[in-house]
Design a protein around this nucleic acid. Structure first.
Lengths: 325, 325
DNA sequence: GTGAAAGCGCTAACAT
DNA sequence: ATGTTAGCGCTTTCAC
């Protein structure tokens, strides 16, 4: 069961190095020899020991991903896709949840740095300095965070926001509310204001709040009081909160108010009415991030940041603006 | 940065063994010596190398969890809680998604067996024989699967189902439909029939289907044609499908039909109307599974299977049965 | 309570 | 194309 290279080598009548080669560089060993080794390995149930391999070679064949909250429905599809992509590259994915807390993030990273060949940090809360230190220690990729000199995957909501603005304008809306739950430095608010302005839509920004269901409840009331006919929420979760509050208040969606979310989590497709939302492709994000970290590990990372876009998924929660009373 | 025990030892004026002890059995070394070592380690930024440690000690300090589909909203809260619990025990959690396919499950397990000290398999599709082989190779815990002689965590829906039956009876329902998506050997159907019978509720079983949203759409139509006043769905996802179809057909929930789900995923709390569901506590599941695998690793596993229960979470999708026409 | 010595299983450098 | 040799960084006897 716990066979070693040496035992396999002996049974196959070759040296340990040859056995090693069969598993790491098969084309360096002759067909016939390779077969003998493979057979011997099979017979003994040999599996290379990753720890020994790592110790000797310095490679773990693992990639680390640190996310703020894996219970956030946005992440599981990304994790799933990334795991598949990592495996294509020959890596195992090690996912760590740091529970949205900075102290935990450091601890979480510490717990896995030495176990992986590269690290992907999602919206890291660490300081620029710490991140630079980290990048000096291990190949690093930042998602949704910019630090000069560190490889980065940017998720751009701009296309989706433009499409949302066009969509709303085409439906005759003029007065919108944006429920903001980003930290100010993210500028999501600014970008939305500019885009909507360009389409001749007025936007009142609410917040910043926490990106929670209850925020949606609260914001819906404010938006109604405000006389808005369209609400763009920070994400699907908040949008669902908005939907709930509107349903509770007897406000018809989309008859009286249109609602748009962000992320296209499964919540969106399954709400009633189904939620119009801005989709960020989990596959695209996962693939790009994985590819980028692998390139970084190989020293072949391109200088410019990778980027994934977004697009509007129109569903039933948006419709024509109501006629003026 | 990449300091070793030897360097730390030298700086602290002690032997490598002492440095090792400071990190693995601190109470075996004197206060003063320990302090010298800790300081030296700090100064050099020393972190023990997990690969070397594993190679020498045979312990990886990691736990593996294999789930059928991490994008299923049932799992992320469990993964999150389990990661926290594992960390409490001093372990890192390695999660692997096998995409509901048996071939992938073997491959997935293979990819991580040698990297963990113990393995938790969720609803494994492997044969009893394979699982026994695996259990001989590595400490193993099965969740939602029974193989004689292998430690097991059982998730019992019985309490939740009883409560659901009582709940429906109290509301005056008599004619129910159960949308089954389990494989027959799971006996979920049988257990529900017996429990509902005992409460004097008639149950028509539909299926088995796949546990998908669309199944709910389809089942809703059948249930209505059937004249049922209550629908118990295989899980929340299916229940939401039912809700959608009913909304589309103008059937009022809970006015005309009551709907109950299973799992209490975030979909349940967020549907409109909010879904009455049978909750399985992710914390309980995660904690029990993690504790069980740790006990198994330590050779202190109890003989009898661990079990976590369930309970009904009444929300807005259930109400009094309509009066007979 | 601390040190010296050995070696976990593998791969990389070098030799052939 | 294959073998020989050495050693990755750590923990674990076994002495003292």
């Amino acid at each position: 069961m716990a066979a070693t290279v040496r035992e396999v080598a002996q049974l196959a009548g070759v040296s340990p190095s040859t056995v090693s080669r069969v598993f790491t560089a098969p084309d360096q060993v002759q067909e016939a020899t390779r077969k003998r080794v493979t057979d011997a390995a099979q017979q003994l149930g040999y599996r290379p020991d990753p720890a020994a391999r790592t110790l000797r070679s310095g490679r773990t064949e693992s990639l680390g991903l640190v996310v703020p909250d894996i219970a956030n429905p946005f992440f599981p599809p990304i994790v799933k896709a990334m795991q598949a992509r990592a495996r294509n590259h020959g890596y195992t994915l090690l996912v760590a949840d740091c529970d949205e807390r900075e102290a935990d993030e450091l601890e979480t990273i510490d717990a896995i740095v030495k176990k992986v060949d590269g690290l992907m940090l999602w919206a890291s809360t660490l300081s620029d300095g710490r991140l630079r230190e980290l990048a000096a220690e291990i190949p690093l990729v930042l998602v949704n965070r910019h630090v000069e000199g560190i490889p980065e995957l940017r998720i751009s909501l701009t296309p989706g926001i433009s499409q949302a603005a066009e969509h709303l304008r085409a439906l005759g809306h003029t007065s919108c509310v944006f429920v903001n739950c980003s930290r100010p430095e993210h500028l999501r608010g600014k970008s939305i204001r500019e885009t909507f302005d360009a389409q001749g839509l007025s936007v009142v920004e609410l917040g910043p709040y926490d990106p929670r269901f209850e925020t949606g409840l609260h914001a819906a009331t404010l938006a109604v009081a405000n006389g808005a006919t369209a609400i763009l929420a920070h994400n699907d979760l908040v949008a669902i909160g908005v939907l709930h509050q509107l349903a509770r208040s007897g406000v018809d969606v989309p008859g009286q108010i249109s609602v748009i979310g962000v992320d296209d989590t499964l919540l969106a497709a399954m709400s009633i009415p189904a939620l119009t939302t801005i989709r960020i492709s989990p596959q695209a994000v996962a693939t790009q991030a994985a590819d980028l970290i692998v390139e970084t590990i190989n020293g072949s990372a391109p200088g410019r940041p990778a980027e994934v876009g977004s697009r509007l998924i129109p569903r039933a929660s948006t419709g024509p603006a109501p006629h003026r009373a």
